[in-house]
């Protein structure tokens, strides 16, 4: 499948934004980041909403008719894409209220708006993941680890961002919780993606050229003449292929530079090393890792229509 830059950027940026919003919405009512550090919370929510909004705008750029995007909110009964849109829109009011509560110091309001915003963030990520997980013609997206993978990426990159921000407030006293979350998130990301890639490489069952043409009774089916000699939309959208050796290298980059390194940096910061530079680097690497993982999620996915072509 074609890794369209607008979509890869969208899931990376909005995933990190929702992850950040989620952690803050959960942690703040538990008493984390209050008192002298209350401006940290407001800053984090602003960053989260900026990332989410940039991602959503970028996903609009993917549309043939972006001016009609509002129509996409109508079919939530059947469509995960529509549900994602509705969840994204419904997450804004509690998130903005949460921001106001943190800004003006209304702890009681924050205690309600925070968890609501966190729930909205989780729901939106679930819908995004289900858009992919429900596409039957793409066997790699049907794997049961795809949805947990989306949650892990968002939780990991959100925690890495929160840890980087926390390093700049209150002499680093708020660090331990988000840094530990980032380290755990990195580990979870490694475990999940490792298992997922192993499963995908082992080959997943799915339709064959014989079942796609119904000619299996005669024997093996080989393409002879293509229906067209030039490109078309299908080949561009579904025919994208990444060389195996590039994919292998990118997987290593995502696993070690993108997931393991930020986890190690977070552990170093917890052990007392200078936190601000380490955690900022960690957050950048985490975002890079998620970006590479998202790109591979598309580039390594194969669509059944390609059975007809080659």
């Amino acid at each position: 499948m074609n890794p369209a830059p607008s979509i890869v950027f969208f899931t990376t940026a909005s995933g990190a934004g929702y992850g950040l919003l989620f952690w803050l919405g959960v942690l703040r009512p538990l008493g984390w980041g209050g008192g002298a550090a209350s401006s940290l919370g407001a800053t984090a929510v602003v960053l989260a909403l900026a990332l989410v909004t940039a991602g959503l705008l970028s996903s609009l750029a993917h549309l043939g008719n972006p001016q009609r995007a509002w129509r996409a909110l109508s079919q939530w009964r059947s469509s995960w894409l529509s549900r994602e849109g509705v969840a994204a829109v419904l997450t804004y009011p509690p998130a903005l209220l949460f921001l106001l509560a943190l800004w003006f110091g209304w702890p009681a309001v924050a205690a309600v708006a925070g968890p609501l915003a966190a729930a909205g963030a989780a729901a939106t990520i679930y819908c995004t993941a289900m858009i992919y997980a429900s596409i039957k013609p793409v066997r790699q997206w049907r794997h049961p680890l795809v949805v947990p993978g989306y949650f892990a990426m968002a939780a990991f990159s959100g925690a890495a961002l929160l840890a980087a921000l926390a390093a700049g407030w209150d002499a680093g006293r708020l660090l331990p919780v988000p840094a530990a979350l980032a380290a755990l998130g990195g580990l979870a990301a490694i475990g999940l993606k490792f298992a997922y890639w192993r499963a995908v490489d082992a080959g997943m069952p799915g339709p064959t050229r014989e079942s796609a043409t119904g000619l299996g009774a005669i024997g093996r089916v080989r393409p002879l003449d293509p229906p067209h000699t030039e490109q078309n939309y299908l080949l561009r959208e579904m025919g994208f292929r990444v060389a195996r050796k590039h994919a292998a290298r990118l997987r290593q980059i995502a696993l070690w530079a993108g997931f393991a390194a930020p986890a190690v940096l977070a552990l170093l910061a917890l052990a007392g090393a200078p936190a601000a530079p380490l955690l900022s680097l960690g957050a950048l690497l985490a975002l890079l890792g998620v970006l590479v993982e998202r790109w591979l999620m598309f580039a390594e996915a194969t669509h059944t229509v390609m059975l007809y072509y080659r």
Binding site: L63, G64, R68, I135, K136, P137, E237, V305
Partner: peptide, 17 residues
């Protein structure tokens, strides 16, 4: 139609362009 292309992904047979 907003041209999101999701239906083309969902068609196994490549029937939408």
């Amino acid at each position: 139609c907003i041209g999101c292309g999701l239906c083309a992904w969902a068609c196994p047979y490549g029937a939408r362009e």
